[in-house]
């Protein structure tokens, strides 16, 4: 039975590693400027974790194969070096390796969160609510009008609670249900939650950030490849959570200007 366990474990370990080695299921290609660091960190971690995983499982399998159900007269042997060597290996090899991975990996995080957006980044406000995203462009004046929560009314399509009659800044704000951005231009996305916690996840952009009610957080990114990408909510927000999505459209600057004009005309 010990040998069956060993064989099964080997099969399981190799079968588990196969899809990773063959890249069967991969995240889609990165379209952001900052995503490369994340992807590199991911592959490094995967290499380390994969080696550790296979080594541990295969050694476990071998030991069980070799030492299970031995005859009575055989003697117990001792692991050469005893515990001290193993503890040293755990601390020095695995421990330092993993800590180093984490410490150097922090630069990917720092590149995203510890650097402010550039001065000419295009500000866009994203608002999450049960169960839809809306986006707001500041219009010609470059200013967002204030939000009046008591005026939010989805029936009137006033998703943000804008008071266009009194607030001059609100008059030219453009509200859309999809996020269009010009390619290769930094976007400063101001995130506002209307009701409960939501999240903003675009796999291709390597961006995931929660909308926190009561906190207006911001992320910034630059998309490098035109196309249409899904925006998902990944923070459980209620019964429609699974259906809460929007699309990111990355387009050339001229397409974007036309698109914005079109949307402005509809307001």
């Amino acid at each position: 039975m010990g040998k069956v366990f060993a064989a099964t474990l080997i099969v399981i370990a190799l079968a588990s590693a196969m899809p990773i080695i063959l890249h069967t299921w991969e995240p889609p290609a990165d379209i952001s400027t900052h995503g490369r660091l994340i992807d590199e960190q991911m592959s490094e971690t995967m290499a380390e974790a994969g080696v550790a995983f296979l080594a541990a499982q295969l050694i476990l399998a071998w030991l069980v194969w070799r030492f299970s159900n031995r005859p009575k007269n055989e003697k117990i042997q001792h692991f050469p070096g005893g515990a001290r060597g193993l503890v040293a290996a755990a601390v020095l090899v695995v421990g330092i390796e993993v800590m180093a991975l984490g410490i150097f990996g922090a630069k990917a995080w720092a590149a995203i969160y510890f650097t402010p957006p550039s001065a000419n980044a295009l500000p866009i406000q994203a608002q999450a609510g049960q169960f839809a995203f809306y986006f707001r462009y500041p219009g010609a004046d470059g200013k967002f009008g204030p939000i009046h929560p008591e005026m939010v009314n989805e029936g009137n399509l006033n998703f943000f609670g804008l008071d266009t009659t009194h607030d001059a800044d609100s008059k030219d704000d453009i509200v859309t249900a999809e996020l269009a951005v010009p390619v290769n231009r930094e976007i400063h996305l101001l995130m506002h939650s209307k009701d409960v916690g939501h999240s903003f996840f675009i796999r291709e952009l390597r961006i995931q950030q929660d909308f926190v009610p009561g906190l207006d957080l911001a992320v910034h990114f630059t998309a490098t490849k035109p196309g249409k990408y899904e925006i998902l909510c990944t923070q459980l927000c209620g019964l429609g959570h699974y259906n809460m999505k929007a699309y990111l459209k990355v387009m050339s600057q001229s397409d974007f200007d036309n698109w914005l004009k079109q949307k402005a005309a509809l307001q």
Binding site: P146, I147, H148, P149, H192, G214, L215, D216, L217
Partner: peptide, 11 residues
């Protein structure tokens, strides 16, 4: 500390 600093402007 961020509760106040990052609160939505209208708050």
């Amino acid at each position: 500390y961020r509760m106040e600093r990052d609160a939505p402007p209208n708050d």
